[in-house]
Design a protein around this nucleic acid. Structure first.
Lengths: 134, 134
DNA sequence: GTTGACTCTGTATCTAGGTACAGACTTTAT
DNA sequence: ATAAAGTCTGTACCTAGATACAGAGTCAAC
């Protein structure tokens, strides 16, 4: 058979079969071609796309936001719209990176300054500056 | 009255009152002291803590993970455990930052190379390399 | 050509994280 | 001192995202 069955693609992308169909319904992946009898046939690009979706989720994006990202990156949009959209998203990403860096530094300090075994480490709240953004 | 009422703290942290109590139940914030009649009294630190929780969520951490972060940063843990925990979390954060940078760069390119109005932009899939990580 | 693994559609169920009452009590402002 | 606003506990309900299942058809292997 040409291409991947739904179970193959699900397996490759480490995702449930039902979730593949769910993503299709949500419009996150395009409707794949079908066999004579109606079986879905996928290409490797679907695997990449699904992996992207999962990863973007882990980075704190909702499925709706991911859908926007995918749509805008697929071309065919007015330049003005693309500029505005990407500008917003880039800002958002920069904030996320900044906050992750703060978090990382705090954890680093926490680890470095951690006293010997058994000794209770001093107060080292991670809360820090992560509280004043927007 | 000394300190903040639950509605004040909820308002400051831009969160629902019920969610404050919910976080208490989940152990994400400590049980605050009470008045004679049983009303919760909060300090400003609670606001910071809640803001931290919300932000960490937006960065893709679950409430359970956030609970771990808060617990470990509160001290009183064995050095070995702290080292191991922070090492893992730091790696995780580094991956997140890397992927966000990829995403940001792709969006940047997408924006820069975007053709004039009306012209459909060329294919510029954001999917890129976000697919090969752990 | 029958048995077991896949797939289809459609509907129902589940988990995480919140939110929304209900009914009773307390505090504040008039 | 009474009405309005705030709080309490407990339980029920809600949304996003994902899974499960039922009933029917299909494919592959022996």
């Amino acid at each position: 058979m040409e291409g991947l069955s739904i179970s193959k693609v699900a397996n490759e992308a480490a995702i449930n079969i039902e979730t593949v169909r769910y993503y299709e319904k949500r419009g996150l992946i395009p409707e794949p071609p079908r066999t004579e009898k109606g079986y879905r046939i996928y290409s490797g690009e679907y695997v990449d796309r699904i992996r992207f979706i999962k990863r973007a989720q882990e980075l704190g994006f909702t499925l709706d936001e991911i859908l926007q990202l995918l749509r805008i990156s697929e071309g065919g949009h007015d330049a003005q719209i693309v500029k505005e959209f990407t500008y917003e998203k880039i800002q958002e990403i920069i904030w996320k990176i900044d906050d992750l860096l703060l978090m990382k530094n705090t954890l680093q300090k926490l680890s470095d300054e951690c006293p010997g075994p058994g000794v209770p480490s001093s107060k080292c709240p991670i809360i820090q500056d992560l509280t004043n953004h927007k």
